[in-house]
Amino acid sequence: MKKLLKIFSALLLICSLNTLSFAAEKVDYLKTDWSFKGLFGKFDRAALQRGYQVYTEVCASCHSMKYLSYRNLAEKGGPEFPEDQAKAIAASFEVTDGPNSDGEMFTRPGKLSDKFVMPYENVKAAQAANGGAYPPDMSVLVKARGGGVDYIYSLLQGYEEAPSGMTLDDGVHYNKYMYGNKIRMSAPLSDGLVEYGDGTTATVEQMSKDVTTFLMWAAEPHLEARHQMGFKAIIYLIILTILVYFSMKKIWSRVESEV
């Protein structure tokens, strides 16, 4: 038994060493409390709803979220907008549909089953409108960046004056946390940029946190279900392991040999 424990602690150690080696390039990101971290982590509903507001009023003019649908906004484990509200949100967007019986495309108000409307037709159009830089799709952005939520959260607040000696081209901005410190996106947030319906003060920090929470949910919409199921699964496995352990002891007691 002791041996086995040793084996598995060694296992864990090797795993953690391996993960450490990936995180070699350490940058000190800004820290904040994420409600969705930890064994029982859940999203902060209000933050998700505010985050959606920041996304749709600020980010969505350049960044698409092509894997999300309006119905997701009303689904369990997400912002959980009431269904009527999610329908109203969807209907506020013009969706291209068709072809109709005349073979022509037409627009209509969005429905819950529609995907989020994209700001640009395609990548090329997005690049053309943004001086050659493609504003990345934000559906899985949090998972697509090494630093995850901490990185996004920091980046949004990392705009500073470029240090002396650094020359920036036109349309390039300095960001403390960006890889290489040069970023095409100008500082997207400023205090009071959006007006929150719930009365929360829209500081840059607050908006960064809200929109990052929203992006985390967008990238991992089943996070809450995963945490809940994980806890149950592990408790179950521990109980079964204990039962099997005693059964094993019982069986092996017939032969006098060490287990």
């Binding site: 296992l11 496995l237 392991t241 099997v244 094993m248």
Partner: peptide, 15 residues
């Protein structure tokens, strides 16, 4: 039973 026990320990790490 012994393999089963070790497998369960492994599954906890997996989970």
């Amino acid at each position: 039973i012994k393999d089963g026990f070790a497998l369960l320990m492994f599954m906890i790490v997996f989970a």
